[in-house]
Write a protein that binds this DNA or RNA. Structure first.
Lengths: 182, 182
DNA sequence: CTTAAGGTAGAGTGATCGCTTTACTTTTCC
DNA sequence: GGAAAAGTAAAGCGATCACTCTACCTTAAG
């Protein structure tokens, strides 16, 4: 259904720009430009609206990571490079998923969509490392790169995007070099 | 004043255990075991209670980082080691400061105390590096270590404390080795 | 003894907010 | 053409919540 997806897109943008707390259902309704009844038809609770926005962001972000170099260290580093681009385009409010989870620590639905997204992100690094260094045990390296991804996201709002990007890339290259992946 | 500080300590614990959103003023009052009137005398708004709790946590955490090896790479890595210990002791709900900021993105007072805390943390790494490698430009390394600190905090709740700790230490050692600091 | 500072208990208030409901209109599609 | 599906507008409801206010008690200095 196209309508639901378009609303989800509006909700994602709305939450990303204004945060979760400062945003009542009436404000979300206005942003999506639908009636309250229609909004609740597609998302039967405020919690469902948040989950819908996160699911939409999940799809958006993985599409954002597609493409790039297919070999060598650059293939492995590509998601970090793209995160750097991403942080340059959006308002710098940290990670939408972690912010949502911080706000609703008791919601099983939100926790599930957050953990699922992050698990798939970690898997993305594992897959890229397996392609570049087949047959080697790169599990710990994948965890390191995932940690750098999370660190860059948080550091960007604290130290600025440029500094965070350089710091993460520096650490990532050092870790790959130590494992003799180039 | 001792009373205010004792209440701040209770507030910190309360927010750390139950999060910010799920915690009404009445619950905070009960946790601090004072009357509502007294609570509001010391912290004239809910926002002030959060700021008070964060200031208390700031002091607690920097005290936690004291001591440890005074030379070599171990001196620089010490805050990361202590963060690993910390994450083993507290309920794993991410960073109290960033959670508070996520919840009140429009509060200048909260933003200030969060940024101040993080700036001092970055400064801590700069100071330690300056001690171990005097005269050298270690600014980018300090940023990298700060980023690993933030990354470990977030990764711990997503991948587990052990994995996050190993990943961060692995990256930190690789970065220090690349700069020939041992 | 008095008095003032600072504590307790807890009811009350005004505003907000998530969500429902009523009444009506538009669109889709056989 | 007509019925069903899906949309709009907006008032209203019930609950929650931050915060205030009333009334009373305890303690310790002068």
């Amino acid at each position: 259904m196209g309508t639901k997806d378009r609303i989800a897109s509006d909700l994602e943008r709305s939450f990303a720009e204004a945060g979760f707390a400062e945003q009542g259902v009436e404000a979300l309704r206005a942003e999506a430009d639908v009636s309250l009844r229609t909004l609740y038809k597609h998302f039967p609770s405020r919690e469902a609206m948040i989950v819908g926005a996160l699911e939409h962001r999940d799809a958006t972000y993985f599409r954002w990571l597609e493409g790039g170099p297919q070999e060598g260290a650059a293939h492995v580093l590509h998601p970090l490079v793209r995160l750097g681009d991403w942080l340059g385009e959006v308002a710098n409010t940290g990670c939408l998923f972690l912010n949502a989870w911080a706000q609703y620590p008791d919601s099983a639905a939100i926790e599930a969509v957050v953990k699922d997204h992050k698990a798939r992100l970690a898997e993305e690094f594992r897959r890229r490392l397996a392609r570049v260094a087949p047959g080697r045990d790169t599990g710990h390296l994948a965890e390191t790169l995932f940690l750098l991804h999370e660190g860059m996201t948080q550091a960007a709002r604290l130290q600025g995007r440029e500094i965070a990007y350089e710091a993460a890339m520096h650490a990532a290259r050092a870790a790959l070099a130590a494992a003799e992946i180039d």
